[in-house]
Nucleic acid binder design. Structure first.
Ligand SMILES: [Zn+2]
Ligand SMILES: [Zn+2]
Ligand SMILES: [Zn+2]
Ligand SMILES: [Zn+2]
Lengths: 141, 141
DNA sequence: CACGCAGTTGATACAATATCTCAAAATCAG
DNA sequence: CTGATTTTGAGATATTGTATCAACTGCGTG
């Protein structure tokens, strides 16, 4: 009986990567976070669960998950630390307040048609997208 | 007779900021770059034009321009350096190849209606957006 | 279920990148 | 021009990510 892995872990394996303890730990931290976590927060959470996992592996895993379009780094406020979001169905959408840096997520998106058109016209194969609006939130208007 | 400034410089002034030499230099570097420049590239270009401008001011200006939705940092490959793009009419769109990290820009976007709907429903005031697709480019398919 | 190899790891030193501090300078309204 | 205020620049410092490489591990094979 083969062990059960999360769908995202399966995607890692299907892409030819090993399901190591370090990778599974990083992935579970990301999955249990509310989204928009910085690398420092991921490092801290990973360390809480298993302090033997090295920093380098955490960064390597974040890069790997990014390459597989499982997560995506975005810049909210400082240019120094990106925050990572999961791309649950391949996409993610939010509004960033340019005054208070609050992030408002929203779900709906009608970008399927645009993606299909781009794929055909530019001969690319798209696996996800991120849509960010900037402006002032209701508190800052 | 008042000096002429670029529309983006005017936006800075209108928002209550001074049009200093450092800020105008950073802005002109960004405007003359092709877009997708890293902070290191901006620093280098600024330094070429006026080596007396300090690093701190360049970073401060990048943050300020970001807050005003004049530019936007995005993450292309390494997690270490964001690249900045101008938001010419408030928006920018590109496709990032998750294999070779090539960036393909495209112009068309039908997000005006979505922006209007979000403004009304969430009581926000939007000033721009960034749309990123991820996938494989034509060379990597 | 042991074997073995390629992929992966972790410790540490290192590199790259951004922020802080504060006296001095520059902007710009009046 | 003058003065109130914002902004600057140098460099030390903090933060964040990478390189190196011997040791280890996942996992296919038999
Ligand atoms: Zn706000
Ligand atoms: Zn979407
Ligand atoms: Zn490519
Ligand atoms: Zn657009």
């Amino acid at each position: 009986m083969s062990e059960e892995f999360s769908p995202r872990a399966q995607r890692l394996r299907d892409a030819g990567h090993k399901l190591t303890h370090a990778r599974l730990t990083v992935l579970s931290v990301l999955e249990e976070s509310g989204g928009h976590v910085t690398s420092a927060e991921v490092l801290e959470q990973v360390n809480e669960r298993d302090s033997t996992i090295g920093r380098a592996s955490v960064f390597r895993t974040l890069d790997l998950l990014t390459a597989l379009s499982i997560i995506r780094p975005t810049f909210i406020h400082t240019s120094l630390t990106p925050t990572y979001v999961l791309l649950p169905d391949g996409h993610h959408h939010h509004i960033i307040c340019t005054n208070c840096n609050r992030v408002i997520e929203f779900e709906e998106c009608g970008l399927g048609a645009m993606a299909a058109e781009l794929e055909q016209r530019l001969h690319v194969k798209l696996s996800g997208h991120l849509l960010e609006f900037y402006g002032l939130c209701d508190r800052c208007c």
